[in-house]
Design a binder for these strands. Structure first.
Length: 104
DNA sequence: TGCTTGACTTACG
DNA sequence: CCGTAAGCCAAGC
C-alpha cells in the first residue's frame, strides 16, 4: 500500500541543508526564501533545522530583515564580512537588496 | 489531546 | 529604530 507521507518529512533536513550548501559566497537567503525555494514547510521549519546544526555555511541564511540570528550575530557577521557579502553602512545588517540569492 | 516554544515574517503605531 | 500583535508550521512536554 502507498506510504502516507502527508505528514512525514524525514528528509526535510537534508533538503534544507542542500539548499544552504548551494548558496554562493557573498550571497545570502532568508529562512522564508529557503522555505519558498523548497516549496514546503515554512521559515520556522527551516530555522528549526538550522538550529540543529549541520556541515553547511549556516551564516548565509539570515532573517528577512537582513539581521543575523540571535546569539550568533558576531560570528555570522564575521563570516559574511570575510566573504565580501554586501553589508549595510552600519555593518550590523546585510543589504538584502544586493545580497539576496534567488537560486540563479 | 492540548498547550508551549522557537536561529520566522509582515504589518501597525 | 523599537515594541506589539497576528499568522504561520512542526517538535516537545
Amino acid at each position: 500500500m502507498p506510504v502516507d507521507r502527508s505528514s512525514d518529512h524525514p528528509d526535510y533536513e537534508e533538503q534544507v541543508l542542500a539548499v544552504v550548501a548551494l548558496i554562493p559566497p557573498g550571497r545570502v537567503m532568508s529562512y522564508g526564501d529557503v522555505a519558498e525555494y523548497l516549496g514546503s514547510g515554512g521559515p520556522r521549519q527551516v530555522g528549526r533545522v538550522m538550529s540543529r546544526g549541520g556541515d553547511v555555511p549556516w551564516w548565509r541564511v539570515i532573517r528577512a530583515d537582513g539581521r543575523p540570528p540571535p546569539g550568533h550575530e558576531a560570528e555570522c557577521l564575521a563570516q559574511l564580512r570575510a566573504e565580501a557579502t554586501p553589508l549595510r553602512p552600519d555593518g550590523t545588517r546585510v543589504d538584502m537588496r544586493r545580497a539576496r540569492w534567488d537560486g540563479s
